[in-house]
């Protein structure tokens, strides 16, 4: 039996529904047949993106490897009619290192000693349980 496992992330493409929304159909038609878009244009809602990915994990401990990616972009004009549809695949993806810097955040972080003392509840009360137990 193969130990590899396939994962489908994001939107589940349904070819039949896709053909129902050619260029010129309305925003409601798109919503009806394809469902809520995975995401829309960040700053204005006139582009729908349906994003789906396929990953494979060859053995249980390996990372999931991205093998397929399909992004369907549907552009609307001002009064909500589909003007253009574009398809991006894995090949369009760019490969680069993301910025390693992160914006600092605050908040109290647990030090090991604190954890041992608070977590030590477990340690402390298991000792107490044993010793305390002897008492009564």
């Amino acid at each position: 039996c193969t130990t590899s496992e396939v994962f489908h992330n994001g939107y589940v493409v349904d070819q039949a529904a896709l053909d129902l929304v050619p260029v010129g159909s309305s925003r409601e038609q798109v919503l009806l047949s394809l469902g809520t878009p995975s995401t829309t244009a960040t700053f204005d809602g006139e582009v729908f993106y349906y994003i789906s990915q396929k990953r494979v994990r060859s053995v249980a401990f390996m990372k999931q490897k991205l093998v397929e990616q399909q992004i369907l972009a549907i552009y609307f004009d001002k009064n909500g009619i589909v003007t253009q549809e574009a398809n991006y695949t894995l090949q369009d993806g760019k490969v680069f290192d993301t910025i390693s810097r992160t914006t600092p955040t605050g908040g109290r972080d647990l030090t090991f000693l604190q954890q041992l003392l608070s977590g030590g509840g477990g340690a402390a009360n298991s000792v107490k349980n044993i010793l305390g137990g002897m008492g009564n």
Binding site: T42, G93, K94
Partner: peptide
């Protein structure tokens, strides 16, 4: 204070997916 990084990460995410136009918009903003 996270807004700048959020926009930069959006650029990265869209750019990695190849949806260049969104990446440009985010970077422009």
């Amino acid at each position: 204070n996270q807004i700048e990084e959020a926009l930069a990460r959006l650029v990265e995410a869209y750019y990695a997916m190849g949806v260049v136009q969104e990446a440009q918009t985010a970077a422009a903003v």
